[in-house]
Amino acid sequence: MAEPVDEESGEAGPLDLTPQASRPQRRARKPFSIVVLLAVVAAVVFVLLRTLGDASLFFYEVDEAVSARAELGTERFRVVGTPQPGLVETSLDGQAAVVFTLCVADVLADVAHLGDPAELFQPGVPVVLQGSWVSGDPPGIENLSAAAEDGWYLRTDHMVVKHDNDYRGDDAELESCGVGS
């Protein structure tokens, strides 16, 4: 093995084996790693609290949305319900829209959804919509056989399907609701 080289003279010299004091522990590393760990935990807790605490992420059932109509005012919220049979294709404020009625138990709410419905949109398959209450009747409501027609409707622009957990094919049960359910 080559002998160590003296940096000043550039000549090879004997290896210095004089006992050296051990390097002091870098104490700063320990608190730093704890700070990083705490920051990760805090970030995760923040995401969870934000996820669980954001009211707009809560799905109101149709009956809850109808009861809280005054309180909700023009606020945007999410509502989950089951579409009744019947869909009217129309336009609202120059945009393509579909009009239908949502239900939970025997409580109904009319909906004017801007844009196309979801691919799996079907009566009996619950959907989650995002929008707000508007006073009046949506266009084409008179063509629906079981509409709420209570002077209010939900004007929505975001639709996702809340698929059930039933994989029994034709034996799978659809949600049933509406008057007389």
């Binding site: 996820t51 992420l57 979801a118 691919e119 799996l120 399907v161 698929h163």
Partner: peptide
């Protein structure tokens, strides 16, 4: 295809 969304933030 099933939900009509790739991802839902907040779910």
């Amino acid at each position: 295809p099933v939900w009509n969304t790739w991802w839902e933030w907040g779910d």
